[in-house]
Write a protein that binds this DNA or RNA. Structure first.
Lengths: 196, 196
DNA sequence: AGGCGAACTGGACAGTGCCCAGATGCAAGC
DNA sequence: GCTTGCATCTGGGCACTGTCCAGTTCGCCT
């Protein structure tokens, strides 16, 4: 699609901007991400992005969707790798995939959960389905190890713990090595084999 | 101290700037917080802040310290109120104080845990002691309900879960009402009376 | 009383997000 | 094939920001 290498009409600017932005996110937080710098890296004028994203926030929202997609993919792959395993082990693998991706891509991760980017009220665009799919994945995995959980309390607790772990590791308050034991202890605590 | 109401030398600009900044944080995220707007609200020139904070980041760091102090105070008060109670109930109260304050002051909360403000490596200023005190409080409370926890895995897990819960509620992915059951289920799961 | 130095002022500069009018060139019609 | 329409891209401009600089004010110490 769009072989066009004409210098004027880029042809695939959205992707180019996304790539450039992720490149910048590898180096700095999204607060320091400037539309003009992204445009510069993509080799276009400072105004070109406005024809694809009405706003700086719109670009960030697009990045958030892309990042969420990657986070979800990382978890799906982890679950595939742990296909034959124990229910607890599968849950641990899922959690570790989440924290692992977050710690490896802290700035991209931050965009996804920034309330100023993805408004708390209603998720717009692809964000809703992506989050829903992630919740489904989690609910499924948690249900396999904590069957009696009508209101999904265990699922919420797991998500919160794993998410918080990621944030605390990124903020430097918890060493990265503490993630695995914490997740494993949580998952075993949730499993009925442990008690309750 | 410094009764000075002379218009030139403010006398207590640091406090005035802090107040103005927290006022702005009640309305918008710290990404949108401008030094000039803070100065304007404090009634001084756009350059006055630079004689107290070398940097925009320095102001944010100061705000982070102040916010962390308030978060800590909220938890201490909650523990005092739950003085005679059950170990689980005390832990729940502590957790609810954390999430409660965070959800009530999402933007201030975000400053505290922004890696771009409080650098992951070494906490500078008052931040270190404040975090340490919070960890002590948590470790103490968790130790009362999960005695055998040499490496503090339960404490880390609790912090992560409560922290993550706060973030997810703020981001709109979890309803605020889900916080209490989640925290209570976690704390009971950690207590040996429950199992294990 | 005199002067030092911290606190504050205004001006300036580069950089930013966003708006406007104009240039460009692909695709669809004749 | 040539013209025309329109999304795409360009450059300039504006208000705003963070930060630097030189000057002003005034509390405090000698």
């Amino acid at each position: 699609m769009s072989r066009s290498s004409s210098s004027y009409h880029h042809g695939d600017l959205v992707t180019a901007l996304e790539t450039a932005a992720f490149e910048l996110l590898a180096e700095q937080g999204h607060a320091a991400l400037s539309l003009r710098e992204v445009a510069r890296r993509a080799g276009v004028s400072h105004n070109a992005p406005y024809h694809h994203f009405g706003d700086r926030t719109a670009l960030l929202h697009h990045l958030a969707e892309a990042a969420m997609g990657r986070l979800l993919a990382a978890q799906q792959q982890a679950l595939e790798r742990a296909e034959g395993a124990d229910a607890v082990e599968r849950a641990v693998a899922l959690g570790l995939a989440y924290t692992g991706w977050a710690v490896a891509n802290p700035n991209a991760f931050a965009v996804v959960f920034d309330p100023a980017v993805c408004v708390p009220g209603q998720p717009t665009g692809e964000m809703g389905p992506l989050i829903a799919e992630n919740e489904r994945l989690l609910a499924e995995t948690v249900a396999a190890l904590a069957p009696g959980d009508p209101d999904g309390v265990a699922a919420v607790t797991s998500w919160a713990a794993v998410h918080g772990l990621a944030e605390l590791v990124i903020a430097g308050h918890v060493p990265a090595a503490a993630a695995e034991p914490a997740i494993r202890s949580l998952m075993t605590a949730l499993s009925p084999a442990h008690g309750g």
